[in-house]
Design a binder for these strands. Sequence first.
DNA 1: ATGAAAGCGCTAACAC
DNA 2: GTGTTAGCGCTTTCAT
Lengths: 370, 370
Amino acid sequence: MVTIAYPNHARGVRDNVVAITIRDVARRAHVSVATVSRALAEPQLLREQTRKRVLAAAEQLAYRPNPAARSLITGRTGNIGIIVPDLDNPFYPSVLRGVQARAHQSGYAVLLADSGEDPAAEENLVHTMGKQVDGVIVCAPFASDAQLARIARMTTLVLVNRRLSGIPAVLMDVARGMRQAIGHLAALGHHRLAYLSGPRQAWSNRERRRGLLAAARSHRIQLVELGPFEPKFEGGIEAADLAVNTGATALVAYNDMMALGALRRLVARGIRVPEDVSLVGFDDILYAAMCAPPLTTVAMPMEAAGRAAVDLLLHQCGDVPPSANAQLHQKLASTLIIRATTAKPALAQRASAGSSAAGPRARKRSPGQE
Amino acid sequence: MVTIAYPNHARGVRDNVVAITIRDVARRAHVSVATVSRALAEPQLLREQTRKRVLAAAEQLAYRPNPAARSLITGRTGNIGIIVPDLDNPFYPSVLRGVQARAHQSGYAVLLADSGEDPAAEENLVHTMGKQVDGVIVCAPFASDAQLARIARMTTLVLVNRRLSGIPAVLMDVARGMRQAIGHLAALGHHRLAYLSGPRQAWSNRERRRGLLAAARSHRIQLVELGPFEPKFEGGIEAADLAVNTGATALVAYNDMMALGALRRLVARGIRVPEDVSLVGFDDILYAAMCAPPLTTVAMPMEAAGRAAVDLLLHQCGDVPPSANAQLHQKLASTLIIRATTAKPALAQRASAGSSAAGPRARKRSPGQE
DNA sequence: ATGAAAGCGCTAACAC
DNA sequence: GTGTTAGCGCTTTCAT
């Protein structure tokens, strides 16, 4: 079955306002429609006098070319699509913002869709957008490699946060940020660390995990991995309870939402952050800076990724903004932002027994439940 | 000058994949193109046998009608536009989510634009979307009444959080939530309250203020108004410092972002929330439930508003989903959500000196500056 | 430098 | 029931 979702349009009933067409402008400027078309698209082909006359007529009539008609003949739409897994996750609106800004800047409009984290929906949405767009950006796709390859065959595709050979993508260099984070923790004296894992299959989670493993090894830090958890506030809450039993002095969460959940749960249990346990998040969403204490986190360049994705896409489409270069995969740096959820581990203080005796008050654990 | 932003398309160069058209399907099914068109749009007009044959052919060819061609003749696009002031404000992604969900559900695609809080941009964007959409939703517009009226003349328009006679809109009944909030505060024993105002001209701010004034009067609560402040975290920080000097025992912020800023600043100054001062936000953004202590706030039905806006719009377009009714202005209820930033005022306790002596520890104000 | 005309892919009269 | 056909508004040869 061909499932084409026709909106149940009331057909034919259209604007009482009669739209003005290229013909009206032509008539008023005493030229042919071809000339009007040229005046707008390739002004240099016309005598200045003619051009001015046409432009004037167009302006007086407030003429706007019909994009559908144009698209029909050129095959280009001037639209790009963006598909995100979940608008509720603050990560994606940020990417979206970058996409939107850059697209409009290049004269493109943006078609938005939310896949609800459903791999099949991602494919369908691309189908639906189909001829409406010149290409689509799929952000942190849930679809399988095979599905993505299929999608790539039917439209110009750019991925964000997913590497797949042959498909252009904007990636974030989590390894770098992770190295900084672990370096930071190691420098503070942490030796044992828990990773609160996100969804196993998520490309981002695998990347972060990989970076973490490498960094931990090079710093001779013990690593215990927990999860997977829902990459949300609730997941963080769940994770925190597990983490406190591991003897880890520092927690690295898959993302900020989880970190925030963990933070909240730790505090609720009377475990102080960062005095009793350090906590590092990932993403640097808005709230990371707003919570108390502000979260140390690895900032992902979300808006920049959105912009880069558009550049890559337009490049693929044959539209080449100067800023875009020809790489297939573009890697953006991530950076550790040290705020207030990381500090020297309580245990290390005892062990190394250095400096002044006036360390942080050595409370062990408050009357929280347990 | 007619400023038509042409994307610098590489023209003519199009898909190596030749798109299949209605003709191909017709040929394969041994029918006319009209029959194919009908098989997809009005199946009941065809003999079952024919219909099946056509549908089969369409499926085999993976045929997808070209929306541009259809749009050209029907005048409908199957798209709706949404313009938001700022994607960074968590309020709007929530609305967007509702819009997106309902639109897709009705077979519509969503064109997104961010106005950057620029009134002129709002008007331009509607122009640009123009014939690409069947109508547009403008969310919390910055444009003037006159501008909006002009916009309404060129497309089907639905407003969110802005009332303007003659233009359909989805409004949020802040008065109700505000009444609940003030009632709650009054019941706790608060007598003096500071309102941390948002932007003066913002319709939402005026509404909230109006609701507050009425509620405060009816509860005989003293009101001091501060601001206007930037409706952001930073604005809340600024506001908090001012608010502590007013002698108010409770703060009502224009929105949650400000409330969160105020919360952070109060805590930083050693003023305990809710023991020393109560705090109420507005909106119920995601973080409101995630911060510590969780924020008491008036929840705005953002996603529902997005859905309602789409219903209203489709209704205007002549597409009438069953759930939509004919009102021009649709008002959605707001509800107070009591969490942990509101409590009995410290002063009231002294004054009323009732109940047990075992009230909250009666610390006055910690060593914060001032 | 400009115009005439042929469609792009589809729907909607209108025939039969 | 199904086919024929005339466009929708625009761009783009091809003439001139």
